[in-house]
Design a protein around this nucleic acid. Sequence first.
DNA 1: CCCTTTAATAGTCAGTGCGACTATTAAAGG
DNA 2: CCTTTAATAGTCGCACTGACTATTAAAGGG
Lengths: 240, 240
Amino acid sequence: MQAGYDKHAFEPFAVTVDLAMFTIREAALHVLLVERGQEPYAGRWALPGGFLRPEESAERAARRELGEETGLTDVTGLHLEQLRTYSEPDRDPRMRVVSVAFAALLPDAPEAHGGGDAAQALWTPYEAARDLAFDHDRILADARDRIGAKLEYTGLATAFCPPEFTLGELQQVYETVWGTALDRPNFRRKVLATPGFVEAVPGAARLTGGRGKPAALYRAGTAAALHPPLLRPTPEGRPA
Amino acid sequence: MQAGYDKHAFEPFAVTVDLAMFTIREAALHVLLVERGQEPYAGRWALPGGFLRPEESAERAARRELGEETGLTDVTGLHLEQLRTYSEPDRDPRMRVVSVAFAALLPDAPEAHGGGDAAQALWTPYEAARDLAFDHDRILADARDRIGAKLEYTGLATAFCPPEFTLGELQQVYETVWGTALDRPNFRRKVLATPGFVEAVPGAARLTGGRGKPAALYRAGTAAALHPPLLRPTPEGRPA
DNA sequence: CCCTTTAATAGTCAGTGCGACTATTAAAGG
DNA sequence: CCTTTAATAGTCGCACTGACTATTAAAGGG
């Protein structure tokens, strides 16, 4: 609370933001990692992030970092959400650092570049992102869990897609994040029956990527929440 | 990130925790508020909270505050979850304060007392908790939204109930938080059909609170998530 | 050009979860 | 003993979903 801090001494803390930036490449979930140049954890990979500046909120700092690390000039449309805050006293060996973690979703993966102060930045398959610096393994796992869960009851999956996309691409997002195959006709029926999830691009625009029948294009809808939700198939052993 | 803070200057921040503590009293959702004694916002009501101490995490600080404000000697079993972090630069007129907000759920409401440094603490009906100090209106609204949403897909409702409870009491929790009436037989069918939500107390124990047929007692189950979820009736205009 | 391959789209069918009800049981209270 | 109150049991039909099969529209190779 604020009530009472007139009476107590309080410790100053360093406050940072850490970003788990996801994209889908070649049907695999990728995360942007940076290689640390200094101790501690020099040479280890870590999530990108940085200090909060005196006059910016954590959200603003996160979006600033998002632009710096991806090299994109316009990051206003990208999905960015606060995850939670990590404040264990020993999470940084040198000093007391409280970190506000964010998850960001990118449609396509602009090739990484060592923007900012990182030695290098690299899009890494999620499975290969292990043994990160600090508590970033934990943050990354939490971020992935959150994204996977939000696919069920929000239209978040469209944040992985370009402005216009096919239902096959959207399904690919679900299959990649959840790690399960989905029945195509059923997925299509469900998505189209959920109001506000996607809207058809009126011009009979079609995308030609490969061989088969060209697919219709859709845009992200306006609904924030999906009703009914698109539940993933039996997350546990039960028949559900 | 941590990568790079060797290169940049960084500002120290004050870090606090704020708690939205909920309980259900007389079929109404109540929040614990404290009255501020000092400026700013002297005399205004606020969420309880306090500064992070040098060697504690936000979670530990929140649980400590939970005990101090409620006066309970044992708060280990209570549901406490991190909500999100509020870091707008102007949220405190005097200095830069970053606050990690938590939501806590209590079974019954032990009468409030002015524990700690607050002038007084009072269980207040949610609807009457308006015009709070700082950005606490926003934090409180966010907390309520989160709790309402989590009732759908987790067994969180049992955190409002005593160790043994009737299905009527559990239904009361849903009806109070969601503000909608539920069909009793259907609620019963749904709860009992959801594995791990509740388990019957083996002894044919029955609770007699009033007139009608005595109700069987249940305990909270072990399942973290409900499959399938217990969706609230048409949160929007659609027939769902 | 035709025929195969590939992928999108359309349609079918049965099981089930759920909303809306009605009926029964077991207590309290006059 | 009869009424009231609340828990519990059971019924019915619709809507949603999983598992399939069928059709359409392109690319590519012979």
